[in-house]
Amino acid sequence: MNDDHFEELAALAAFDLLEGAEKAEFAAMLERDPALRARALALREAGSTLAHVAPAAIPPPELKARILASAAAGVSAPAKSNLIAFPVLLAWAAAACFALVAAWMGELYMGSRAQARALHDEMALAALTLQSARNQMEAEHIIHRQELADAQGQVAEATHRYADSERQITALDQRLKSQGDLANFKISTLASLLGNTPQALAVAVWDPARQQGVLSVSKLPTLAKNQDYQLWVIDPQYPGPVSGGVFAIDPENGTAHVTFKADKLIKTPAKFAVSREAKGGGDSPKGPIVLLSQ
């Protein structure tokens, strides 16, 4: 017999690691040579000392009480005699009943504890799952809140830029409109038509959109107190001149700067004229024309 092989089998047997053919072979070895039993036993004893290598742990005090209670409740040491007296038998029967009850209670206790442990595990798992879901939702909430804040910032910026653009467009529109209105203005210079006012000069500007104009004259002679200068707008659509109203001049230098409106709607201000009329003017020119546009 190979001694190393025996020791190997004995060492594995010390930890109950033998199976099948090896187990049968080892049993046969011990059967053939009882001296090997002691060697195998010594290895098993050495293996059992590994119990001291486990990290130190002290069992709870109640475990001892529980063991002693179980021993007292359900178990007696093996009897020495096969003959049992009736009173003893009765006591044994009572003890057996007690043991059965204790065993039943113990089983109930163990079952309940196993069930409680399983429930505890399930609760722990559920709590973990819940916590995980909460964490995920919280993370998503934070991300969404950040995205919303970003989007709101972008909207605010876009709104601001849009308002700027609107203001620019409005300004441009006004500038374009002003330029367009200016293009439509009718500007005329009026010159003396009579020899009595050779130095007189006037400029008339007509805004067709607003249907009003501005007349600026200079060096017109001073009139008698019962006379007024009257402005006229000549539009081909009307058979006669349309009154633009009377105006007074500064007697010192013969100037005037007046805003005027026509009595009728003017489509084509072809010419402007200034005549000398009776005080207050009239619907049609009666006096001589003093100034006429070119």
Binding site: L50, A51, P55, P59, K64, I67, L68, A77
Partner: peptide, 25 residues
């Protein structure tokens, strides 16, 4: 074997710690 539970209690005091530590391990 004689039914002496004090002996069981003494045995517990002698064995319980390594046995418990082994099982716990």
């Amino acid at each position: 074997v004689q039914g002496d539970r004090d002996a069981l209690a003494e045995l517990y005091d002698r064995f319980s710690r390594p046995l418990y530590a082994t099982s716990l391990r």
